[in-house]
Lab assay of single mutants.
Amino acid sequence: YCPACDKSFKTEKAMKNHEKSKKHR
């Protein structure tokens, strides 16, 4: 789950990829 974006991810890999993504924050 990403509190900054208020989005939840089913896998930890998806969240790690999201955190590295430029769309994050």
Score class of each variant (00 low, 15 high):
Y1H: 04
Y1E: 14
Y1V: 15
Y1P: 05
Y1M: 15
Y1Q: 15
Y1D: 15
Y1L: 14
Y1G: 12
Y1S: 15
Y1K: 10
Y1C: 02
C2R: 00
C2W: 00
C2S: 08
C2E: 00
C2Q: 00
C2N: 15
C2P: 01
C2G: 00
C2V: 01
C2L: 03
P3S: 15
P3C: 14
P3A: 13
P3G: 15
P3L: 13
P3E: 15
P3T: 14
P3I: 15
P3F: 15
A4C: 08
A4V: 13
A4I: 15
A4W: 01
A4D: 14
A4H: 14
C5Q: 01
C5P: 01
C5A: 05
C5N: 03
C5K: 02
C5D: 03
C5T: 02
C5R: 01
C5H: 02
D6Q: 05
D6A: 10
D6Y: 00
D6H: 01
D6S: 06
D6G: 07
D6E: 15
K7G: 02
K7W: 00
K7C: 08
K7V: 01
K7I: 11
K7P: 01
K7L: 06
K7M: 03
K7R: 07
K7N: 06
K7S: 06
S8I: 00
S8N: 10
S8H: 07
S8W: 00
S8G: 07
S8F: 01
S8K: 13
F9E: 08
F9A: 05
F9C: 04
F9G: 07
F9W: 06
F9Q: 12
F9D: 12
F9P: 08
F9I: 02
F9Y: 08
F9V: 09
K10C: 03
K10N: 08
K10F: 00
K10M: 01
K10E: 14
K10V: 01
K10A: 08
T11F: 03
T11Q: 04
T11G: 09
T11R: 04
T11L: 01
T11W: 00
T11I: 00
T11E: 10
T11D: 04
T11Y: 00
T11A: 05
E12A: 12
E12K: 15
E12M: 06
E12L: 07
E12F: 05
E12S: 11
E12V: 07
E12P: 04
E12R: 09
E12D: 12
E12C: 04
K13I: 13
K13G: 14
K13Q: 14
K13A: 11
K13S: 14
K13D: 13
K13H: 12
K13W: 07
K13T: 14
K13M: 13
A14G: 11
A14V: 04
A14D: 10
A14F: 02
A14I: 08
A14S: 13
A14R: 09
A14T: 11
A14M: 07
M15S: 07
M15K: 04
M15N: 07
M15F: 11
M15C: 02
M15W: 02
M15A: 07
M15H: 05
M15Y: 07
M15E: 05
K16A: 05
K16F: 05
K16L: 08
K16P: 03
K16I: 04
K16H: 05
K16M: 02
K16T: 09
K16G: 09
K16S: 10
K16V: 03
K16Y: 02
K16D: 02
K16W: 02
N17K: 11
N17T: 13
N17G: 11
N17Y: 09
N17C: 12
H18I: 05
H18F: 03
H18N: 04
H18D: 05
H18W: 01
H18S: 11
H18A: 07
H18M: 03
H18K: 04
E19L: 12
E19M: 14
E19R: 12
E19D: 15
E19F: 12
E19S: 10
E19T: 11
E19Y: 12
E19H: 08
E19N: 10
E19K: 13
K20S: 10
K20N: 06
K20H: 13
K20D: 09
K20Y: 06
K20M: 10
K20C: 10
K20F: 07
K20A: 12
K20Q: 05
K20T: 11
S21K: 08
S21Q: 07
S21A: 10
S21R: 08
S21C: 05
K22G: 10
K22W: 01
K22Y: 08
K22D: 09
K22F: 03
K22T: 07
K22S: 11
K22Q: 07
K22H: 06
K22C: 04
K22A: 10
K23P: 12
K23A: 14
K23D: 13
K23R: 08
K23V: 06
K23T: 08
K23E: 08
K23W: 12
K23I: 05
K23N: 04
K23S: 09
H24Y: 02
H24M: 10
H24S: 07
H24R: 01
H24I: 04
H24L: 05
H24N: 11
H24T: 09
H24P: 12
H24K: 05
R25D: 15
R25A: 15
R25M: 11
R25Y: 02
R25P: 12
R25I: 08
R25N: 13
R25V: 14
R25H: 06
R25T: 14
